[in-house]
């Protein structure tokens, strides 16, 4: 596999009548976890369906795992797993039976399917409840069963459409850890969609941002979260202490503004940025004012910032 992209698209376009779901999308996806971010209706699910060969693109080309989507859809569907966004589980079947059946529908033999289903259900964390009909499952358990069927045939790539949809915070964290493990420990490339940018910061190696069917940005997650050069400072006390520190720092030539309980400092002028002089300055100012320094950290950008910037640009 090596350097060959897992997914590559060139000018991919999908229009439903007058609705432009995807417009001229050219993007490459590599190994590991790739986040696909966009608001509802940004074209995330459409992209996945086009890549699965279930929807015919209006224009452009794409290949998945080296197979062309227009002519080798069947070959692609043999190698990928798909976890849809919406509910798709029959209520009167147990997760165990269902995952075995779905593994067989992907071409595994009877005994291999049983073995794989047991393995995968263990990995997603469905224990005894796997033998109960899925109609009685909680949302968290349903999401796990949906994920299990996507992994049942040991795919080389999984499309996970909103895997954290409807989960409470604890279940959300569990699911994100699972997605992270799929990309690293399991060695399966994953394309994960979400409309929550913060989630993808934690788990993905690469992020693609879609907006209204257009590609807004595609780059490594690290690039999104690059340091801005600014600093965040927090001192013990209330807003009064915060403002005292901010005013004192401003007098020393730093541009400061309050952010929550902290003082955000814009990138300092070059003479202060050298050799951590600005850190010393902050320490001394806090000490002079008699304030307890609680936190001093580099200010990082968030995916949200990128999204907002892009939104205003388009």
């Amino acid at each position: 596999m090596g350097l060959a992209p897992v997914i590559s698209t060139a000018g991919l376009t999908k229009h439903y009548g007058t609705v432009h779901a995807l417009t001229d999308l050219t993007v490459e996806v590599g190994d590991g976890v790739t986040g696909l971010v966009g608001a509802n209706g940004a074209g995330k699910s459409t992209l996945i369906k086009v890549l699965l060969g279930l929807l015919e693109p209006t224009g452009g080309h794409a290949s998945v795992l080296g197979h062309d989507i227009e002519h080798e859809g069947q070959e692609i569907r043999r190698l990928v797993g798909y976890m849809p966004e919406h509910d798709c589980l029959p209520p009167d079947v147990s997760a165990s039976d269902f995952v075995v059946h779905m593994a067989r529908m992907s071409g595994l033999g009877a005994s291999a399917a049983r073995e794989r289903a047991a393995d995968v259900l263990r990995h997603v964390g469905l224990d005894e409840e796997r033998y109960r009909p899925m109609g009685g499952y909680s949302t968290g358990m349903k999401q796990r069963a949906k994920l299990a069927q996507a992994l049942a045939h040991d795919p080389r790539l999984v499309f996970l459409d909103e895997p954290t949809n409807g989960l409470d915070p604890a279940a959300r964290t569990d699911m994100l850890n699972l997605v992270r493990r799929i990309g690293t420990e399991f060695g399966i490339a994953a394309l994960v969609t979400s409309h929550l940018l913060g989630e993808l910061e934690q788990v993905s190696d690469h992020v693609i941002v879609l907006d209204g069917g257009h590609l807004l940005r595609s780059s490594a997650t690290g690039d999104f979260l690059q340091r801005t050069g600014g600093l965040l400072v927090e001192v013990v006390g209330t807003e009064t202490e915060r403002d005292r520190l901010g005013e004192a720092l401003a007098q020393r030539g730093l541009t400061c503004r309050p952010r929550g309980t902290m003082v955000a400092i814009d990138p300092p002028p070059p003479e202060l940025a050298e050799g951590g002089a600005v850190h010393d300055l902050i320490r001394d100012v806090a000490a002079d004012l008699g304030l307890g320094l609680m936190r001093l950290q580099p200010d990082r950008r968030h995916l949200e910032d990128v999204f907002l910037e892009g939104g205003t640009r388009v």
Partner: peptide
């Protein structure tokens, strides 16, 4: 009806069988 109503048809169609 079952596969269409519970939308598990999507899971079948994401697999090799056309």
């Amino acid at each position: 009806s079952r596969d269409l109503r519970h939308r598990s048809i999507v899971l079948y169609l994401a697999r090799p069988l056309p």
